[in-house]
Design a protein around this nucleic acid. Structure first.
Length: 112
DNA sequence: GTCCTGACGAGCG
DNA sequence: CCGCTCGCCAGGA
């Protein structure tokens, strides 16, 4: 076999799994930034990749995607959009946000 | 192959 | 605090 592309497939799925793992490890009541998740997943400087993966998650996923916000400490959906509303709901539920929509940032360190 | 887009982030004025 | 630019990288047209 002239090429070792079989390992490429496995390689392509590694980042995805790593992100899911980190995502699932975010403690309830905490918030993490895309960049933080990317770094913990071994993908430094690739916050956008994390965002893209989250956008591909099925609606019925059990992963706490809503605990991920941007580095400004805000929801990365346009205010008022469906995604924004949904995420805000979850965060209100966990006490990570106020009714006004303002998020309560907490410096959370955890072990993935 | 190139060009544009995107649930981002840091830097600068 | 706001808006703009550039860097990063995967996907789709």
């Amino acid at each position: 076999m002239p090429t070792g592309d079989a390992s490429d497939d496995a390689k392509a799925e590694r980042p995805r799994e790593a992100v899911y793992r980190v995502l699932a490890s975010i403690p309830e009541g905490c918030l993490a930034s895309y960049g933080q998740v990317a770094e913990l997943a071994g993908l430094p400087k690739q916050a956008r990749q994390v965002g893209r993966m989250l956008s591909l998650l099925p609606r019925d996923t059990r992963l706490p995607w809503y605990r991920v916000v941007n580095a400004s400490g805000k929801i990365s959906f346009p205010a008022g959009s469906p995604g924004y509303q949904r995420q805000l709901e979850y965060l209100l539920d966990e006490g990570s946000a106020e009714a006004s929509g303002r998020l309560r940032w907490r410096e959370c360190r955890w072990r993935p």
